[in-house]
Amino acid sequence: MNNSFDIHRFGKLVLHDVRRCSPRYGTVGAVMISELTFTPLMVLSQNFLTQDPHGAGYRLSLMVLMSALIASTIPTQLYFNAGKKKTGIYFAMLPASKWEKYLSMALLSLVLVPLMLMVANVAIDSLLTAVHAPYYHKYLWQSEALQWIEPAMVCNCALAFIGPTLGFIYANTIQNKTCRNTMSIVLWLWLMGGVFSMMILEITDLAGIGWYIVAAQASLAALMGWLGWNKMNKMSY
């Protein structure tokens, strides 16, 4: 058996984590439902106020922003105990490698939960478009916005989510409450700034610097990933 990574063991670990996190699903589910309700409500109220149906681009941006905000809180909610000295013993003693444990955390936080959230968002948006065409105008995939979305923008949006989420995994392991809270605030600012900056850059015609921001965000995301992994690797309980 490979001590660093064994796909069979990793599969068992992911399933274990999904089951183990189930007591937190109530909170996670409530937050997700709020988001899934809030996004269409905001679209509908905006449309009602302006009497001008917003395009699918607006809905898509709102959806991405809200999903990123919500999904980035998942590591804190699901793995809060794993990074704590008193409560993390169970997690540390589970017969899987440290690398597998970190990877399973990242997979759940960065892929599975956000994917679930996006699918739910798109499904609700499509349903509303089908039943409420005047205000929802077009399906997302028919949107003209898809044409002006640039690769740098997609990369930046993804990194503005990946970086802070990896940061939240690291923040879970910080024992000092003040440091942990300060770091969480910085991560929130990064997340919001990262997503909003793309929209601002697009409007202000400064999109040319997009790839520089991608590089900066990628470096920060890598730093967050390394900090989290390093802490999980060396953590004592």
Partner: peptide, 23 residues
């Protein structure tokens, strides 16, 4: 190193354990 092979051979029951209430 907490290798999986080692962790499979050892179990530690601390004095205080945080249990999943609903389980």
């Amino acid at each position: 190193d907490r290798l999986p092979e080692m962790l499979q051979r050892i179990v530690f029951l601390p004095d205080e354990v945080m249990l999943p209430d609903n389980a």
